[in-house]
Design a protein around this nucleic acid. Structure first.
Lengths: 192, 192
DNA sequence: CCCATGTGAGACATCACTGTCTCAGTGTGG
DNA sequence: CCACACTGAGACAGTGATGTCTCACATGGG
Protein backbone atom coordinates (compact mmCIF):
# COMPACT_ATOMS: atom_id res chain seq x y z
CA UNK A 1 0.00 0.00 0.00
CA UNK A 2 2.92 2.26 -0.49
CA UNK A 3 0.97 4.15 -3.10
CA UNK A 4 -1.35 5.52 -0.43
CA UNK A 5 -0.51 8.70 1.38
CA UNK A 6 -1.63 7.14 4.63
CA UNK A 7 -1.48 3.58 5.79
CA UNK A 8 -4.28 1.21 5.05
CA UNK A 9 -4.90 0.57 8.74
CA UNK A 10 -6.92 3.75 8.97
CA UNK A 11 -5.21 4.14 12.31
CA UNK A 12 -6.15 7.23 14.26
CA UNK A 13 -8.76 9.35 12.60
CA UNK A 14 -6.91 12.61 12.19
CA UNK A 15 -10.13 14.58 11.89
CA UNK A 16 -11.43 13.05 15.10
CA UNK A 17 -8.28 14.03 16.93
CA UNK A 18 -8.63 17.58 15.69
CA UNK A 19 -12.27 17.61 16.75
CA UNK A 20 -11.42 16.50 20.27
CA UNK A 21 -8.53 18.92 20.51
CA UNK A 22 -10.74 21.78 19.38
CA UNK A 23 -13.42 20.88 21.91
CA UNK A 24 -10.90 20.66 24.74
CA UNK A 25 -8.78 23.66 23.85
CA UNK A 26 -11.90 25.76 23.44
CA UNK A 27 -12.68 25.15 27.09
CA UNK A 28 -9.12 25.13 28.40
CA UNK A 29 -6.70 26.83 26.08
CA UNK A 30 -3.68 25.83 28.18
CA UNK A 31 -4.41 22.11 28.05
CA UNK A 32 -1.37 19.83 27.96
CA UNK A 33 -0.49 17.65 25.01
CA UNK A 34 -1.15 14.76 27.34
CA UNK A 35 -4.63 16.07 28.09
CA UNK A 36 -5.28 16.59 24.41
CA UNK A 37 -4.23 13.01 23.73
CA UNK A 38 -6.40 11.63 26.51
CA UNK A 39 -9.36 13.69 25.31
CA UNK A 40 -8.93 12.12 21.87
CA UNK A 41 -8.61 8.67 23.40
CA UNK A 42 -5.09 8.12 22.15
CA UNK A 43 -1.64 8.12 23.72
CA UNK A 44 0.68 11.06 23.79
CA UNK A 45 3.09 9.15 21.57
CA UNK A 46 0.49 8.67 18.87
CA UNK A 47 -0.61 12.26 19.12
CA UNK A 48 2.95 13.33 18.63
CA UNK A 49 3.28 11.07 15.59
CA UNK A 50 0.49 12.97 13.89
CA UNK A 51 1.30 16.47 15.11
CA UNK A 52 4.93 17.20 15.81
CA UNK A 53 4.28 19.44 18.78
CA UNK A 54 1.75 21.80 20.14
CA UNK A 55 2.52 24.39 17.51
CA UNK A 56 1.79 22.01 14.67
CA UNK A 57 -1.44 21.03 16.36
CA UNK A 58 -2.61 24.62 16.61
CA UNK A 59 -1.64 25.16 12.98
CA UNK A 60 -3.69 22.16 11.96
CA UNK A 61 -6.56 23.46 14.06
CA UNK A 62 -6.24 26.78 12.30
CA UNK A 63 -6.37 25.07 8.92
CA UNK A 64 -9.44 23.16 10.03
CA UNK A 65 -11.10 26.34 11.22
CA UNK A 66 -10.38 28.07 7.95
CA UNK A 67 -11.68 25.12 5.99
CA UNK A 68 -14.91 25.00 7.99
CA UNK A 69 -15.40 28.74 7.75
CA UNK A 70 -14.97 28.75 4.00
CA UNK A 71 -17.34 25.83 3.67
CA UNK A 72 -19.84 27.71 5.81
CA UNK A 73 -19.49 30.80 3.64
CA UNK A 74 -20.00 28.66 0.55
CA UNK A 75 -23.14 27.14 2.00
CA UNK A 76 -24.44 30.55 3.03
CA UNK A 77 -24.36 31.87 -0.56
CA UNK A 78 -23.41 35.34 0.58
CA UNK A 79 -23.99 36.96 -2.78
CA UNK A 80 -27.57 35.79 -3.22
CA UNK A 81 -30.72 37.59 -2.16
CA UNK A 82 -31.02 40.31 0.46
CA UNK A 83 -27.87 40.94 2.41
CA UNK A 84 -29.70 40.59 5.72
CA UNK A 85 -30.82 37.09 4.80
CA UNK A 86 -27.29 36.29 3.75
CA UNK A 87 -26.11 37.37 7.20
CA UNK A 88 -28.66 35.07 8.83
CA UNK A 89 -27.52 32.17 6.66
CA UNK A 90 -23.92 32.95 7.44
CA UNK A 91 -24.48 32.93 11.20
CA UNK A 92 -26.46 29.72 10.94
CA UNK A 93 -23.78 27.98 8.89
CA UNK A 94 -20.97 29.30 11.08
CA UNK A 95 -22.51 28.02 14.29
CA UNK A 96 -20.80 24.61 14.32
CA UNK A 97 -17.43 26.28 13.82
CA UNK A 98 -18.03 29.11 16.27
CA UNK A 99 -16.34 27.49 19.26
CA UNK A 100 -13.25 26.64 17.24
CA UNK A 101 -13.32 30.12 15.80
CA UNK A 102 -13.42 31.61 19.28
CA UNK A 103 -10.39 29.59 20.31
CA UNK A 104 -8.39 30.59 17.26
CA UNK A 105 -9.55 34.17 17.60
CA UNK A 106 -7.78 34.43 20.96
CA UNK A 107 -4.90 32.12 20.10
CA UNK A 108 -3.85 34.05 17.01
CA UNK A 109 -2.22 36.64 19.20
CA UNK A 110 0.56 34.13 19.76
CA UNK A 111 1.59 34.30 16.13
CA UNK A 112 1.91 38.04 16.35
CA UNK A 113 5.31 38.26 14.78
CA UNK A 114 4.57 35.98 11.87
CA UNK A 115 2.29 36.56 8.94
CA UNK A 116 -1.22 35.32 9.48
CA UNK A 117 -2.63 32.55 7.40
CA UNK A 118 -3.87 33.78 4.04
CA UNK A 119 -7.09 31.89 4.66
CA UNK A 120 -8.22 34.42 7.22
CA UNK A 121 -7.65 37.20 4.74
CA UNK A 122 -9.78 35.39 2.18
CA UNK A 123 -12.55 34.93 4.75
CA UNK A 124 -12.34 38.53 5.90
CA UNK A 125 -12.62 39.67 2.32
CA UNK A 126 -15.70 37.58 1.64
CA UNK A 127 -17.46 38.75 4.78
CA UNK A 128 -16.49 42.35 4.21
CA UNK A 129 -17.77 42.10 0.65
CA UNK A 130 -21.14 41.02 1.96
CA UNK A 131 -21.37 44.07 4.16
CA UNK A 132 -20.24 46.32 1.36
CA UNK A 133 -22.93 44.83 -0.84
CA UNK A 134 -25.52 45.45 1.84
CA UNK A 135 -24.40 49.04 2.19
CA UNK A 136 -24.48 49.52 -1.56
CA UNK A 137 -28.02 48.18 -1.82
CA UNK A 138 -29.17 50.49 0.96
CA UNK A 139 -29.91 47.65 3.37
CA UNK A 140 -27.11 48.37 5.82
CA UNK A 141 -26.20 51.65 7.44
CA UNK A 142 -23.17 53.38 6.08
CA UNK A 143 -21.92 55.16 9.18
CA UNK A 144 -20.17 51.97 10.30
CA UNK A 145 -17.35 50.42 8.29
CA UNK A 146 -17.47 46.95 6.76
CA UNK A 147 -14.30 46.16 8.68
CA UNK A 148 -16.05 46.87 11.95
CA UNK A 149 -19.10 44.87 10.88
CA UNK A 150 -16.77 41.97 10.22
CA UNK A 151 -15.00 42.27 13.56
CA UNK A 152 -18.30 42.64 15.34
CA UNK A 153 -19.70 39.47 13.81
CA UNK A 154 -16.62 37.55 14.88
CA UNK A 155 -16.93 38.98 18.37
CA UNK A 156 -20.58 38.09 18.64
CA UNK A 157 -19.95 34.58 17.34
CA UNK A 158 -17.22 34.12 19.92
CA UNK A 159 -19.33 35.57 22.71
CA UNK A 160 -22.24 33.41 21.69
CA UNK A 161 -20.17 30.26 21.59
CA UNK A 162 -18.69 31.06 24.97
CA UNK A 163 -22.04 31.90 26.52
CA UNK A 164 -23.53 28.68 25.18
CA UNK A 165 -20.67 26.56 26.49
CA UNK A 166 -21.03 28.22 29.89
CA UNK A 167 -24.73 27.51 29.90
CA UNK A 168 -25.69 31.15 30.13
CA UNK A 169 -27.82 30.94 27.02
CA UNK A 170 -29.51 28.07 25.18
CA UNK A 171 -27.79 26.59 22.16
CA UNK A 172 -31.01 26.60 20.18
CA UNK A 173 -31.13 30.40 20.44
CA UNK A 174 -27.60 30.83 19.13
CA UNK A 175 -28.42 31.74 15.54
CA UNK A 176 -31.38 33.94 16.31
CA UNK A 177 -29.62 35.79 19.10
CA UNK A 178 -26.57 36.66 17.12
CA UNK A 179 -28.12 37.40 13.77
CA UNK A 180 -31.02 39.45 15.07
CA UNK A 181 -29.00 41.46 17.55
CA UNK A 182 -26.40 42.16 14.92
CA UNK A 183 -28.95 43.14 12.28
CA UNK A 184 -31.56 44.92 14.34
CA UNK A 185 -29.72 46.02 17.46
CA UNK A 186 -31.11 46.20 20.95
CA UNK A 187 -33.56 49.01 20.26
CA UNK A 188 -37.13 48.20 19.57
CA UNK A 189 -38.12 49.04 16.02
CA UNK A 190 -40.73 51.72 15.59
CA UNK A 191 -42.64 49.91 12.89
CA UNK A 192 -42.64 46.53 14.60
CA UNK B 1 7.43 54.82 59.10
CA UNK B 2 6.14 51.57 60.38
CA UNK B 3 2.70 53.09 60.67
CA UNK B 4 2.45 53.27 56.89
CA UNK B 5 1.17 50.36 54.89
CA UNK B 6 3.86 50.95 52.34
CA UNK B 7 7.33 52.26 52.73
CA UNK B 8 8.06 55.91 52.45
CA UNK B 9 10.27 55.41 49.41
CA UNK B 10 7.26 55.12 47.16
CA UNK B 11 9.23 52.38 45.47
CA UNK B 12 7.63 50.82 42.44
CA UNK B 13 4.24 52.21 41.57
CA UNK B 14 2.03 49.20 41.93
CA UNK B 15 -0.64 50.70 39.71
CA UNK B 16 1.90 51.37 36.99
CA UNK B 17 3.08 47.77 37.11
CA UNK B 18 -0.48 46.57 36.79
CA UNK B 19 -1.02 48.94 33.88
CA UNK B 20 2.00 47.63 32.02
CA UNK B 21 1.11 44.05 32.76
CA UNK B 22 -2.41 44.58 31.49
CA UNK B 23 -1.14 46.18 28.30
CA UNK B 24 1.33 43.37 27.66
CA UNK B 25 -0.88 40.46 28.65
CA UNK B 26 -3.67 41.85 26.53
CA UNK B 27 -1.47 41.42 23.49
CA UNK B 28 0.34 38.27 24.59
CA UNK B 29 -1.55 36.35 27.23
CA UNK B 30 1.28 33.84 27.68
CA UNK B 31 3.91 36.44 28.48
CA UNK B 32 6.55 35.38 30.98
CA UNK B 33 6.94 36.97 34.39
CA UNK B 34 10.28 38.16 33.10
CA UNK B 35 8.63 39.83 30.13
CA UNK B 36 6.03 41.41 32.38
CA UNK B 37 8.79 42.78 34.59
CA UNK B 38 10.73 44.16 31.64
CA UNK B 39 7.58 45.75 30.23
CA UNK B 40 7.07 47.52 33.55
CA UNK B 41 10.71 48.56 33.62
CA UNK B 42 11.53 46.65 36.78
CA UNK B 43 13.39 43.47 37.58
CA UNK B 44 11.81 40.08 37.96
CA UNK B 45 12.80 40.07 41.63
CA UNK B 46 10.96 43.29 42.33
CA UNK B 47 7.94 42.12 40.40
CA UNK B 48 7.89 39.00 42.50
CA UNK B 49 8.13 41.06 45.69
CA UNK B 50 4.87 42.78 44.78
CA UNK B 51 3.02 39.83 43.28
CA UNK B 52 3.90 36.43 44.63
CA UNK B 53 3.60 34.62 41.33
CA UNK B 54 1.74 34.79 38.09
CA UNK B 55 -1.49 33.75 39.70
CA UNK B 56 -1.38 36.59 42.20
CA UNK B 57 -0.67 38.99 39.35
CA UNK B 58 -3.68 37.86 37.39
CA UNK B 59 -5.81 38.09 40.51
CA UNK B 60 -4.62 41.63 41.08
CA UNK B 61 -5.35 42.39 37.43
CA UNK B 62 -8.81 40.97 37.91
CA UNK B 63 -9.36 43.15 40.97
CA UNK B 64 -8.18 46.16 38.99
CA UNK B 65 -10.50 45.32 36.14
CA UNK B 66 -13.45 44.94 38.47
CA UNK B 67 -12.61 48.18 40.19
CA UNK B 68 -12.39 50.06 36.90
CA UNK B 69 -15.58 48.51 35.60
CA UNK B 70 -17.53 49.41 38.69
CA UNK B 71 -16.15 52.93 38.57
CA UNK B 72 -17.19 53.13 34.92
CA UNK B 73 -20.68 51.92 35.77
CA UNK B 74 -20.89 54.49 38.54
CA UNK B 75 -19.84 57.25 36.17
CA UNK B 76 -22.31 56.07 33.55
CA UNK B 77 -25.31 56.50 35.90
CA UNK B 78 -27.08 53.52 34.41
CA UNK B 79 -30.38 54.21 36.13
CA UNK B 80 -30.80 57.75 34.86
CA UNK B 81 -32.56 58.87 31.71
CA UNK B 82 -33.30 56.75 28.64
CA UNK B 83 -31.74 53.32 28.70
CA UNK B 84 -30.19 53.83 25.29
CA UNK B 85 -28.34 56.90 26.50
CA UNK B 86 -27.22 54.93 29.53
CA UNK B 87 -25.78 52.30 27.21
CA UNK B 88 -23.87 54.98 25.31
CA UNK B 89 -22.49 56.38 28.55
CA UNK B 90 -21.57 52.90 29.70
CA UNK B 91 -19.62 52.11 26.54
CA UNK B 92 -17.87 55.46 26.70
CA UNK B 93 -16.85 55.00 30.32
CA UNK B 94 -15.81 51.40 29.78
CA UNK B 95 -13.50 52.20 26.90
CA UNK B 96 -10.31 52.71 28.95
CA UNK B 97 -10.89 49.38 30.65
CA UNK B 98 -11.90 47.49 27.52
CA UNK B 99 -8.48 46.02 26.74
CA UNK B 100 -8.04 44.77 30.26
CA UNK B 101 -11.57 43.46 30.18
CA UNK B 102 -10.84 41.56 26.98
CA UNK B 103 -7.83 39.92 28.56
CA UNK B 104 -9.72 38.88 31.68
CA UNK B 105 -12.66 37.76 29.59
CA UNK B 106 -10.52 35.11 27.93
CA UNK B 107 -8.35 34.39 30.96
CA UNK B 108 -11.29 33.59 33.21
CA UNK B 109 -11.72 30.28 31.49
CA UNK B 110 -8.62 29.15 33.34
CA UNK B 111 -10.34 29.51 36.68
CA UNK B 112 -13.06 27.18 35.53
CA UNK B 113 -12.96 25.00 38.59
CA UNK B 114 -12.96 27.77 41.14
CA UNK B 115 -15.68 30.21 41.99
CA UNK B 116 -15.48 33.43 40.06
CA UNK B 117 -14.91 36.69 41.76
CA UNK B 118 -18.08 38.12 43.22
CA UNK B 119 -17.24 41.42 41.57
CA UNK B 120 -18.12 40.08 38.14
CA UNK B 121 -21.48 38.97 39.44
CA UNK B 122 -22.14 42.45 40.78
CA UNK B 123 -21.19 43.95 37.44
CA UNK B 124 -23.28 41.48 35.49
CA UNK B 125 -26.22 42.28 37.69
CA UNK B 126 -25.90 46.00 37.17
CA UNK B 127 -25.60 45.68 33.41
CA UNK B 128 -28.43 43.19 33.20
CA UNK B 129 -30.58 45.50 35.29
CA UNK B 130 -30.04 48.23 32.75
CA UNK B 131 -31.25 46.03 29.94
CA UNK B 132 -34.21 44.89 31.98
CA UNK B 133 -35.08 48.49 32.65
CA UNK B 134 -34.85 49.26 28.95
CA UNK B 135 -37.13 46.35 28.13
CA UNK B 136 -39.60 47.40 30.79
CA UNK B 137 -39.76 50.94 29.46
CA UNK B 138 -40.33 49.65 25.95
CA UNK B 139 -37.04 50.96 24.62
CA UNK B 140 -35.39 47.59 24.08
CA UNK B 141 -36.76 44.59 22.28
CA UNK B 142 -37.95 41.75 24.45
CA UNK B 143 -37.22 38.79 22.18
CA UNK B 144 -33.59 38.79 23.35
CA UNK B 145 -32.66 38.11 26.95
CA UNK B 146 -30.87 40.60 29.19
CA UNK B 147 -28.23 37.92 29.75
CA UNK B 148 -27.49 37.82 26.05
CA UNK B 149 -27.45 41.60 25.83
CA UNK B 150 -24.86 41.59 28.58
CA UNK B 151 -22.71 38.95 26.94
CA UNK B 152 -22.99 40.71 23.61
CA UNK B 153 -21.81 44.00 25.05
CA UNK B 154 -18.81 42.30 26.58
CA UNK B 155 -18.06 40.62 23.29
CA UNK B 156 -18.32 43.84 21.34
CA UNK B 157 -16.14 45.67 23.84
CA UNK B 158 -13.52 42.94 23.55
CA UNK B 159 -13.73 42.87 19.77
CA UNK B 160 -13.49 46.62 19.63
CA UNK B 161 -10.48 46.75 21.91
CA UNK B 162 -8.78 44.05 19.89
CA UNK B 163 -9.57 45.67 16.56
CA UNK B 164 -8.25 49.00 17.81
CA UNK B 165 -5.04 47.48 19.13
CA UNK B 166 -4.56 45.75 15.79
CA UNK B 167 -5.10 48.99 13.96
CA UNK B 168 -8.09 47.72 12.04
CA UNK B 169 -10.29 50.51 13.30
CA UNK B 170 -9.58 53.95 14.71
CA UNK B 171 -9.61 54.43 18.45
CA UNK B 172 -11.69 57.57 18.19
CA UNK B 173 -14.51 55.54 16.64
CA UNK B 174 -14.53 53.03 19.48
CA UNK B 175 -17.47 54.36 21.43
CA UNK B 176 -19.64 55.19 18.46
CA UNK B 177 -18.99 51.90 16.70
CA UNK B 178 -19.85 49.73 19.63
CA UNK B 179 -22.76 51.64 21.09
CA UNK B 180 -24.49 52.36 17.79
CA UNK B 181 -24.07 48.88 16.36
CA UNK B 182 -25.29 47.37 19.59
CA UNK B 183 -28.28 49.70 19.86
CA UNK B 184 -29.30 50.08 16.25
CA UNK B 185 -27.87 47.03 14.54
CA UNK B 186 -26.50 46.86 11.04
CA UNK B 187 -29.81 47.47 9.29
CA UNK B 188 -30.64 50.92 8.09
CA UNK B 189 -33.55 52.41 10.01
CA UNK B 190 -36.67 53.12 8.01
CA UNK B 191 -37.41 56.44 9.62
CA UNK B 192 -33.88 57.75 9.46
C1' DC C 1 1.24 -18.32 8.67
C1' DC C 2 4.34 -14.35 8.84
C1' DC C 3 5.38 -9.74 8.23
C1' DA C 4 4.33 -4.94 8.21
C1' DT C 5 2.05 -1.21 10.10
C1' DG C 6 0.34 1.42 13.76
C1' DT C 7 -0.34 1.76 18.50
C1' DG C 8 0.21 2.19 23.95
C1' DA C 9 3.13 2.51 27.69
C1' DG C 10 6.91 4.02 29.73
C1' DA C 11 11.73 5.80 30.37
C1' DC C 12 14.74 9.51 29.52
C1' DA C 13 17.05 13.96 28.84
C1' DT C 14 16.02 18.62 27.78
C1' DC C 15 14.17 22.98 28.24
C1' DA C 16 11.62 27.00 29.92
C1' DC C 17 9.52 29.06 33.65
C1' DT C 18 9.12 29.56 38.35
C1' DG C 19 10.07 30.55 43.25
C1' DT C 20 13.73 31.59 46.41
C1' DC C 21 17.90 33.27 47.91
C1' DT C 22 22.07 36.25 48.33
C1' DC C 23 24.72 40.28 47.58
C1' DA C 24 25.86 44.83 46.24
C1' DG C 25 24.32 49.41 45.05
C1' DT C 26 21.38 53.56 45.74
C1' DG C 27 18.66 56.91 47.78
C1' DT C 28 16.13 58.89 51.74
C1' DG C 29 15.12 60.19 56.48
C1' DG C 30 16.60 60.82 61.06
C1' DC D 1 26.83 60.57 58.95
C1' DC D 2 24.44 56.33 59.53
C1' DA D 3 20.67 53.20 59.38
C1' DC D 4 17.12 51.69 56.74
C1' DA D 5 14.27 50.47 52.86
C1' DC D 6 14.12 49.21 48.33
C1' DT D 7 15.99 47.78 44.11
C1' DG D 8 18.71 45.12 40.29
C1' DA D 9 21.38 41.35 39.03
C1' DG D 10 22.45 36.90 39.29
C1' DA D 11 22.68 32.08 41.05
C1' DC D 12 20.19 28.10 42.35
C1' DA D 13 17.16 24.12 42.50
C1' DG D 14 12.45 22.51 41.67
C1' DT D 15 8.79 21.68 38.54
C1' DG D 16 6.11 20.59 34.59
C1' DA D 17 5.77 20.04 29.74
C1' DT D 18 8.04 18.57 25.82
C1' DG D 19 10.52 15.80 22.26
C1' DT D 20 12.57 11.39 21.53
C1' DC D 21 13.40 6.75 22.08
C1' DT D 22 12.57 1.76 22.90
C1' DC D 23 9.82 -2.19 23.46
C1' DA D 24 5.75 -5.08 23.49
C1' DC D 25 1.25 -5.78 21.58
C1' DA D 26 -2.56 -5.89 18.31
C1' DT D 27 -4.42 -6.17 13.75
C1' DG D 28 -4.75 -6.71 8.83
C1' DG D 29 -2.76 -8.10 4.31
C1' DG D 30 -0.05 -11.14 1.42
Amino acid sequence: MSHMGYGCLMAVDRAHVLRSAAALLTRKSTATMDEVAKAAGISRATLHRHFAGRDALVRALEALGIEECEAALDAARLDEGPASDAVRRMVREMEPAAALLAFLYTENQLFEGEEQNAGWTRIDDRVSALFRRGQGSGEFRIDLSPAWFTEAVYGLLASGAWAVSEGRVARKDFTHMIAELFLGGALRREES
